[in-house]
Computed example of a mutant assay.
Amino acid sequence: MAKHFSFSKFPPALIALLIQGCAFVMAAGLCWLLIQITLHFPDLLPLFFPSLGTLLIAQGIFAYFLSIRLKMAHWWRYIHLLFPLAIWAALALQIPTSYFLLGFILTGALFWSVFLTQVPFYPSKPEVWNAVSELLPGKQLRILEIGSGLGNFAIRMAQLRPESCVEGIEIAPLPWLISVIQSKFFASRVRFRLGNYEKVDFANYDLIFAYLSPAAMPELWEKALIEMDGESLLISHEFPVPGIAESQKIRFSSDQRQCFVYQMGQYRPT
């Protein structure tokens, strides 16, 4: 029996490109239909004759509904809807193309992880760092923050737990560079690496701290379950592992976000 084809295995940016391409074809077809109407009914020419604005508005609407049909994350829907209109506005305002090149380079360096891992940039708060430190046993630990961003959690953890070895790994170049600069500025012992945490062996660590996204949690859990020691902890800020009951929760007074703590030994088969 043939396997069911699914777009879920493709990077979201690639799916988005496909959606915009299909939406453009559909919008162009709609404009062609409007032109045919005006040819047969000349009196309707002022009302139905398409323009560039018509094309781009239709493209955004088609892309919006296609993204829903392909079950993209909700924020992608509004990106699809507004992207063609943003192009229209840029053309109308005659914004120099060099500005777009600069913006593309900066956003690409900052949000490269979104394309590869579906994980946007989420910075955590100081109360999270302190709460995680208080949860840990008072002994030397090997701590890894995956998706370390600007490095604030790892640097603070190294200050709170100086006896421990703290590392961070980040796939986006610009946040990684900032984290390295920060570690030098604060004379921190944290080691920051540029790369994908999927290639790291979790068996080398007592604590894995993650602030990723719901899309990344199932694969993260599978990797942790295979590689992590029974005494080690997986802590995910804000996003729980779907279908898995956490060992405990850490709640915060400032907002509704929580840390979900998983004592890996509880999930080993007996």
Rank of each mutant, 00 (worst) to 15 (best):
E145G: 05
Q118Y: 11
I178W: 15
Q20K: 01
M264L: 14
L34C: 12
R69C: 06
E198V: 00
P12I: 00
S133L: 02
E163G: 00
K199Q: 15
P175F: 00
P123E: 03
V180E: 10
S232L: 00
F62A: 11
L101W: 14
G151I: 04
F202Q: 07
F62W: 14
A215L: 01
Q20T: 11
S133Y: 07
S254M: 06
T38E: 08
A187N: 13
W88Y: 15
F65Q: 04
E134I: 07
A210S: 11
L44P: 10
I87Q: 12
A86S: 14
H4G: 05
I61Q: 04
W112E: 01
P173M: 07
L70G: 03
F48E: 06
P46V: 00
K125N: 08
A131Y: 01
F260G: 01
T107A: 14
E219I: 13
R161H: 12
T54P: 14
N130F: 13
L194M: 10
S188A: 07
N152Y: 11
M264A: 00
S247W: 09
P162R: 02
L233P: 04
A109G: 15
Y262S: 00
T107L: 14
T107M: 12
P162I: 04
L194H: 14
Q36T: 05
S254D: 10
G265Y: 01
S67I: 03
G195N: 04
A90D: 03
V180G: 01
P242L: 01
K71T: 08
L177E: 10
G168C: 07
K125I: 03
W176T: 04
S253W: 04
I68Y: 14
L144W: 14
D201Q: 11
V25T: 11
S164E: 08
R156W: 03
Y64G: 08
K223S: 04
W75L: 07
V114K: 09
V180N: 08
A216T: 05
D255T: 06
K184R: 14
L66Y: 11
M1A: 12
L144I: 12
I250Q: 04
K125P: 07
Y267Q: 02
S183A: 15
L177W: 14
K223A: 03
D255S: 12
